[in-house]
Structure formats: structure tokens, C-alpha cells
Computed example of a mutant assay.
Amino acid sequence: MQAPTSNGPNSAPQIVTREDGATIAYHFTPGKNRDKPTGVMFLGGFKSDMEGSKALALESWCQDQGRAFLRFDYTGHGKSSGAFVDGTIGQWAADAMYALDHLTEGPQVLVGSSMGGWLMLLVARERPERLRGLVGLASAPDFTEDLMWNELNDAQRAELDREGHVALPSDYDPLNPYIITKALIEDGKNHLLLRDPLNIQVPVRLIQGMQDRDVPWATALKLQDALVTDDVEIQFVKNGDHRLSETADLRRLTRTLGNLLNDLENPDRETA
């Protein structure tokens, strides 16, 4: 089913209501170039929304290319329904799969940022027939276990067990710490990907900042090792931070995506 069109960052989002009553807000740009049949779908990060600079840069690039593009908010994020503290990795992965199933059509490349890089892998494992490639920025698979639970001290773990949640400081908004719930941590254990071979066969492109204070750059190497596909490339950005949202970062993102799509859609094209 092709989604209705949304026109740019200043327009009101489209809203789709699922059978469970939850609503998903999204912006969809239909493809206009028949020679570019592969759509692009953006999956944002933890506590972010679809109005971020990476999502908008990708939308603008896809519009210029005449290529279909979808950005959306998970439940508990942005303009979608629900409370952030009620969310889990499984729930947000289900949101992403719903968006893929109901708001896009045809082959897709998923672009995932941070937590979105984890979710895109979960979606790719469940919907291999829909996907042609993946692009991850500071991809954070297993972060609830490796970067949250394993970093909590004894007092924080006791508080999490006793209260059902614990507050962790945010570098991006010091006055509003992250509220990490026991449900988020426990559900995350059900979706870990880096402990076993990850049976994804499509090409994967990873971009990782070396100055990322949230996701260690070694995570990209762990992901590369876990992936079954041999078609994995990593770009390490010497001065790149977690957000990778500077002008040069956005150019790198669209260039990487464009090269991947060219390879996918023109497999016999000769290169210099």
C-alpha cells in the first residue's frame, strides 16, 4: 500500500492508526523516477524524532533524485502516540516493521541512526524479501545491554530493580536525564544481535565517528564480524561525534547512500 504524500519539514505529518489504536506519524515522499525503483526509509535514534537534520537531508536528497522516501516517529517519540518511558526495543522494532509493511512499497534501503541502526538490523532479519541494503550511522545494536546495563553500578542496578527505572544523565539535555526502565533493559535482552552470526545477506554500509562518546567505534567492528554478508564497508570519521550531523557528515551520508543505490540498481555499470 503506497502512503499518502507529505510535503517537507514544515507540513503537518500524515497519521496512520494501527489496529491496536496506536498512531504513527510520518512523512512520505513518493518516487517519481522509474529508473530509481528502490525507496529509502529512515529509522531515527533513541528519544529522537523524524525532524532531525539527517532525516531532512535524506528527504531533500531523495526528492532531488525522484526517489521514494519515508521518515516516521516510533511510538513514544515525536508526534506518534504513547509515552517514551513505556517503549521497548521490541515495540519500536515492531513500529518500524509496521511502517515498512504499510507505508512503503517495493524494495527498500534502510538508513538507521544509533538505536535505529539496531532496529534496521532487526527489521532486515524479519523482512529480507523487502530489503536491498542497509546504511548505519553510529549503529548501536545491543546498547541496552552493552552500553546501559553493563555500565550501571550496583546502586543504580538496585534502584532499577526497586523502582522499575533509573535516571541517567544526557549529554544533549542535562536538565532532562534519560529515564531507563527495567522493561527496556529486560526486553533488550530478547533482541541481542552481536552474540551470534547475524544472517543478513544484503550490502551494509556503516559510518562511525571516532569521537563518539555514546557508541564506541569498536561496535562497528563487532557488527561487521557478526554479519554473515561479506559486503560490509565501514567509514571511520576521525573527528566524528555520535550525531554525525555536521554539513560534511550529511554530505558523506548522502554520498554513501547514493553509491550504494547506484551499485544496487546498476550492477553492470563500469567504474573508473
Rank of each mutant, 00 (worst) to 15 (best):
Q65K: 05
H165G: 01
L103K: 08
E151R: 13
G133T: 13
L119T: 13
T229F: 09
S170P: 00
K32V: 05
G136Y: 04
Y26H: 03
L184P: 02
F28N: 03
A3D: 02
R255E: 15
R255Q: 15
V202K: 12
W61S: 07
P128F: 11
R252M: 15
N259A: 14
D73P: 10
P107H: 13
L193T: 01
D49Q: 10
F69N: 09
R125T: 05
P203K: 10
H27S: 10
V232M: 01
L147R: 07
L121A: 10
A218D: 12
K189P: 02
F143W: 03
P13L: 04
W118K: 05
H27V: 02
D35M: 07
G8S: 11
P203M: 07
R34M: 08
G188P: 00
L192Y: 02
E265N: 04
L250Q: 08
L147M: 11
T104L: 05
L184H: 01
I207N: 10
T247A: 15
Y178E: 00
Q65N: 02
L260I: 12
H77M: 14
D86M: 01
L261R: 09
T219A: 08
L244M: 11
L131R: 11
L58I: 07
A248I: 13
N153G: 15
G112R: 05
G66L: 01
L152S: 12
L131C: 14
W149G: 06
G66R: 01
L152A: 13
W217M: 09
E270A: 11
D146S: 14
L134R: 10
L110Y: 12
Q235F: 14
T17G: 11
